[in-house]
């Protein structure tokens, strides 16, 4: 009994402090993939029903709607090519790195962490298709999170709303930089340490700033939902609502090539030993 407690204490310390058990964890995770696949069967069946059992009128409606959407989107893309060329040219003038289009891989969510305080997802893509640690995950509406664990066939994603997660953002309107932290609720992010006089308003869109070298630049993260300025406090209290459908999405996109792959990585300043 005492031996067991000691063993567990050593393991906990090893995992929390030194992350030395990553390989063991990824091997066990690979072995446990069937558990997630079996647990996913009910969802798969309901998705199959959605796909295959539909009334003719609904299909026609869908078809009509998609055709219109497609037309609108195609119209917008016509300008995209010239805008992109413009953008590259202007950036070249400014001597900054070109904004390349990111490669993406479609993944499917096959599991959610059963622990309510941990906002994690399990995806059906793993090291076999070159998913890597720290890779950004987006859905149609915005940033969802980053990969924190890769096994050979699955990977685990930490959502932006997890209390241990933070993402560097900037206000799309004026470029004010901030850090959005998860607070453990699926529809809220907190933005701490923004001076009370900073120009940030309700309804502002926050996009990834690419600082920190973890997330690619320019993906929407959240919309500011509330700004409280208390004259007695140095910082404003700001909360934002994530734009991504964190609890509804099924298909998600893994983004390849974050800023780390494109722009030179800022070297961390050499720490001067102070002792």
């Amino acid at each position: 009994m005492g031996l067991g407690a000691l063993l567990v204490a050593v393991l906990l310390a090893a995992d929390l402090r030194y992350s030395g058990l990553e390989t063991a964890r990824s091997v066990i995770d690979t072995l446990l993939t069937p558990v997630y696949l079996i647990a996913d069967i009910p969802t798969m069946i309901s998705n199959w029903q959605d796909d295959n059992i539909r009334s003719r009128s609904r299909l026609l409606d869908d078809n009509d709607r998609l055709r219109r959407e497609n037309l609108v989107l195609q119209g917008r893309t016509q300008q995209l090519a010239s805008l992109q060329a413009d953008n590259t040219r202007l950036r070249a003038l400014l001597n900054s790195t070109a904004l390349l289009r990111d490669d993406v891989l479609v993944g499917e969510i096959i599991g959610v962490s059963p622990d309510p305080v941990r906002h994690q997802l399990v995806l059906d893509k793993g090291a076999e298709v070159d998913v890597y640690l720290g890779q950004a995950l987006i859905d149609a509406d915005g940033l969802m999170g980053q990969v924190v664990e890769v096994s050979s066939t699955t990977s685990r994603v930490l959502l932006v709303t997890d209390p241990t997660h933070s993402v560097p953002v900037q206000v799309n309107r004026n470029g004010v930089r901030a850090v959005a932290e998860g607070v453990g609720s699926l529809d809220e992010l907190a933005i701490h340490h923004v001076a009370a006089t900073t120009d940030i308003q309700q309804g502002d869109l926050l996009v990834t700033s690419g600082l920190g070298g973890r997330f690619p630049f320019g993906y929407p993260v959240a919309v500011v939902s509330e700004v409280q300025r208390n004259p007695g406090e140095a910082f404003a209290r700001i909360s934002a609502r994530p734009t991504a459908a964190l609890d509804r999405a099924r298909h998600v996109l893994l983004v390849f090539g974050g800023p780390a792959a494109k722009s030179p990585v800022l070297e961390r300043p050499v720490e001067v030993a102070s002792e």
């Binding site: 393991l11 059963p114 622990d115 924190v148 664990e149």
Partner: peptide, 13 residues
């Protein structure tokens, strides 16, 4: 622990 993504040892303990 592995299924929940918890640090190894949490549920073991």
């Amino acid at each position: 622990d592995v299924l929940e993504g918890a640090p190894i040892g949490q549920n073991m303990l």
